[in-house]
Amino acid sequence: MSSTGTSLIGGRRVGMSTAGMSPGSRVRRMPLGLDIVIRDAVPACLPRERPPCAHPGPAARPQRLIARESGEYLFVGLRDTAAALPPWRPAPDVLLGPGDICFYDVHRPSVLDFPRQARLKVFLLSRELLGLARSDVPRLTHAPVTPTSRLGALLSPFLSDFADTAAVSRSAVGDMLAWNAVSLLSTLAGDHLSDQARGQQPDTRAPLMSDILDFIDLRLSDTDLSPETIARAHHISVRYLHKLFREEGTTVGRLIQRRRLAECRRVLTLRSAENMTIAAVAHRWGFASPTHFSRVFRATYGMSPSAWREFAGRGDREAGA
């Protein structure tokens, strides 16, 4: 019998099912709707949550994650993914190594084939908090982030230490660490999606897609950045540009908005930018309307830009007190 608790995301209560929580699990509720689960129990299994609705059609065998070495394995469980997802499709087995960071869907967790000495550290949070669309989730869970990658080398030890210290940290420090973890996971998710877009395209499109993504990143502050300007710069039709992004499960506009929001959120936490108004930050990263910026920021992250800035600033002030 499973029970249901709640976690708070930007003032909204979100149900958390304890189905799949073994007696050996340690659970810590953090700010921003982040829950941390540490599990040593055998057999190893990932925390799961009931989807809000069932999907028609038969469910294929879930993906199997295989580990042959003892050690720590890091997982990021994404909530609020099920409403627009199709039924399961067969997925190949994936071999993991210690320190890997693996995103997964809490409504459709992978099956683990792990040694007895493995320890799982799982971070559960809403995909909205990371600025992800539902269509991003299948691509994000396709492959792990290894500790030898650029961001994996930074985040793997940080997340491991954070999971261990969260339970004993005083409130102010815990709040600041939770904000840092969510911010870094958002960056990791965006970077991992970009790597998937660059690395999984057929050879004829990979260089073009890479150039397009770099072009967008360099011009996020340009309010005139649009599918038309991007297509013209790369000597392709707007229709073909949309086709490239549609095959990646996203749109040009959605990607531009996600990148801009991520940059604005980052700047809003910098002490060097504390004198910049919300409107100035929005304009700096290509939002022509402060009202529109505040609306999409709240819809994506569950809180207003000013609340996000205040939360980050309070964590810094109280941690340093």
Rank of each mutant, 00 (worst) to 15 (best):
S156Y: 06
S156M: 06
P157W: 02
P157M: 07
P157R: 12
F158P: 03
F158Y: 12
L159R: 01
L159P: 08
L159S: 11
S160N: 12
S160E: 11
S160D: 11
S160F: 03
D161A: 14
A163V: 00
A163Q: 06
D164C: 09
T165P: 00
T165V: 06
A166Y: 01
A166R: 03
V168G: 15
S169K: 05
S169P: 03
S169F: 04
S169R: 03
R170P: 12
R170T: 09
A172R: 07
A172D: 14
V173S: 13
V173E: 15
V173K: 09
G174D: 08
D175P: 01
D175R: 04
M176H: 05
M176N: 11
L177E: 05
L177W: 01
A178E: 02
A178M: 05
A178F: 01
W179R: 14
W179I: 09
A181H: 06
A181P: 05
V182K: 06
S183W: 02
L184H: 11
L184T: 03
L185Y: 07
S186W: 01
S186N: 12
S186M: 10
S186V: 01
S186L: 10
T187C: 15
A189Y: 05
G190A: 12
G190F: 03
G190W: 02
G190H: 15
G190Y: 01
G190E: 12
D191G: 14
H192I: 02
H192V: 06
L193K: 10
L193V: 05
L193N: 05
S194E: 12
D195M: 08
D195I: 08
D195K: 08
Q196L: 10
Q196G: 13
A197V: 07
A197G: 15
R198M: 08
R198C: 08
G199T: 11
Q200D: 13
P202I: 01
P202K: 04
P202M: 08
D203G: 14
T204F: 10
R205E: 14
S210F: 02
S210V: 01
D211N: 12
D211I: 00
D211V: 00
I212W: 05
I212G: 13
L213S: 06
L213R: 02
D214W: 03
D214V: 09
F215G: 04
I216Q: 06
